[in-house]
Simulated scan of single mutants.
Amino acid sequence: MNKKVTAYFFAFIALGMASAALGPTLPGLAEQTSTQLSGISFLFATRSLGFLAGSILAGRIYDRLPGHPILMVLLVSLGISLLLVPLIPQLWLLTILMFLAGTVESGIDVGGNTLMVWRFGEKVGPYMNSLHFFFGVGAFLSPIIIAQTMLVTEGSIRLGYWVLAIMVLPALLLFIRFPSPPIRTRDTAVQGQITNLPIIALVAAFMFLYVGAEVAYGGWVYTYAITLDLSTETAAAYLTSFFWGALTVGRLISIPLTAKFHPKTMLGGALAGCVASMLILLTWRSSTAVLWAGTIGLGLSMSVIFPTTLSWAEHTLSLSGKMTSYFFVGASLGAMSIPWLIGQLFESVGARVTMVTIFVTVLLAVAIFGLLVWQARLHQEAKSTKLMLE
């Protein structure tokens, strides 16, 4: 395997670990800060707000400066934030740290995706799915590490966060050795191609809904399962891990498929699987077996959506760092608002609001996908007409 590409993979393992850590540690952080779940759930919104701020800035920075030094600084910052999370007993101070952590995570996320697109161009599909496969590896391992360290430390979350902090080192060491890819200077979003703007807006809206659903499920399924007595705390941590593990397996399976099928076909099939999985979860909502089966099915179905959407956007628009940032702004807004909404309703309405909210979000994503297919077809027709006239 190309060692330059391996550096990105290790960075996304660390990013996946950090991203999946909050859900299984939510009750522990609530106890640490003497806060109820409705209050501690605000950390989802705060981290996503930081992700939003970072997304707005990151693309412009990568369009101007070499990418690898930026990633190294961000990886060090990520490790420090993970070290500090279990040491802070005040909610307001932890909120500030989560905002900064979200900013750092967005820089790594936008940077990894942008630099991978620049390196491989329209052939990025399999590499993009591989990149997000390794994000899934990190997200799968994170709840397991947390569960095992909690067993060793009699319920403390401190050791788990510190183990995750160490995992930034392999990527950091690899990035030191390799130069950054050339900066792509052409920005197709500002070259008078007005037909790009609806596509950019629709992709951002689609990312809002999809990422909101993914983060909400990964973040709340642990608390959902133990609140409804569908699982013990340890088993619920493993349930969260299986969700991210299914994402990981799905991305591994999809790597050869992306070379054979159009991104539109991949996305249509994935969204159909999401709808079916959510219907199963809502229909047999009192069954532990169905909760596990639906969780795995949803993870498999969701696995290809994010990387395939970026690949489709690159194929249609030829992405710059700034354009990629727009998509991540939409994603961060979704990751901020949907889990926060569930947190506000969880105790007052009941735990079942979790699945209902996610199902509605998925249905809206399907509707946006239909509009996106229509706009992409119009864009391709306009581009073909322009080429014929020239």
Results as ranks from 00 to 15, higher is better:
60 R>G: 03
160 G>D: 04
100 L>C: 12
65 L>W: 09
113 N>V: 12
369 F>R: 13
175 F>C: 01
52 L>H: 13
135 F>C: 03
370 G>K: 09
265 T>A: 00
222 Y>V: 14
320 S>K: 08
340 W>Q: 08
66 P>V: 05
186 R>W: 07
270 A>T: 02
143 P>D: 07
344 Q>A: 10
185 T>P: 05
303 S>C: 01
59 G>Q: 11
217 Y>C: 08
11 A>N: 10
364 L>N: 07
326 Y>C: 07
58 A>E: 12
345 L>C: 13
170 P>D: 15
236 A>I: 00
193 Q>H: 09
190 V>Y: 10
384 S>P: 01
67 G>E: 02
121 G>L: 02
142 S>Q: 14
133 F>Y: 05
356 V>I: 06
232 T>H: 00
48 S>N: 11
25 T>K: 06
141 L>R: 15
148 Q>I: 11
169 L>W: 12
336 M>H: 07
111 G>E: 15
107 G>N: 09
222 Y>F: 11
228 L>Y: 09
247 L>R: 14
206 F>V: 01
4 K>I: 08
102 G>C: 04
74 L>S: 10
103 T>S: 09
50 G>D: 01
128 M>T: 14
323 M>C: 08
294 G>F: 02
288 T>V: 14
384 S>A: 07
359 F>H: 06
51 F>R: 09
364 L>I: 03
271 L>E: 06
292 W>G: 04
37 L>E: 10
76 V>A: 15
245 G>Y: 14
215 V>N: 07
61 I>Q: 04
246 A>H: 11
315 H>Y: 15
285 R>P: 03
16 G>T: 07
368 I>P: 03
300 L>G: 07
274 C>R: 15
20 A>S: 15
106 S>F: 06
387 L>I: 05
